[in-house]
């Protein structure tokens, strides 16, 4: 720690809950989660290059319950970071900065990411259900 303990922003505890703080921190957390999730991408590509047995191991992990849990979490993180990232790109052009727009599109990206993830996994279940 620094030699002198100075007060640090953000003072999370003094704020009333609002959607902006959720989208802000979730963008960072999902970004970190996706960075860790690249380990699975790395494993997939290395296994695909290495041969049938390593590939079967990775595919088996993805089909296990812990693999499914990770994939569901990862697909939600991707959905959220994608939608909120597009929101940030619009904000870079100073679009959607009115408070009511900012709050509304914060809810759109948050709820939209859940809807997108649900649609994805309903699709996967209908295609390969139970497999």
């Amino acid at each position: 720690m620094p030699a002198t303990a100075r007060p640090l922003s953000p003072h999370v505890s003094v704020y009333r809950w609002q959607v902006q703080m959720v989208t802000s921190i979730l963008h960072r957390l999902t970004g970190i989660a996706l960075a860790i999730g690249t380990l699975l991408l790395l494993a997939l590509l290395l296994a695909l290059a290495a041969g049938p047995d390593p590939y079967a191991t990775v595919a088996g992990f993805c089909r296990s319950w812990i693999g499914i849990v990770l994939l569901v979490g990862w697909s939600w993180a991707l959905s959220f970071h994608l939608l909120n990232g597009i929101r940030h790109l619009f904000q870079d052009f100073v679009w959607g900065y009115e408070i009511h727009q900012f709050v509304r599109n914060g809810f759109i990206t948050s709820i939209g990411s859940l809807v997108l993830t649900a649609l994805l996994w309903i699709g996967i279940y209908l295609q390969w259900g139970g497999a």
Partner: peptide, 19 residues
């Protein structure tokens, strides 16, 4: 996402050929 969604339906040789 489109690519990853095709993988569960493929065996090793077909997945490798796709990539």
């Amino acid at each position: 996402v489109w690519f990853a969604l095709r993988l569960p339906g493929l065996d090793y040789a077909a997945a490798r050929a796709l990539l």
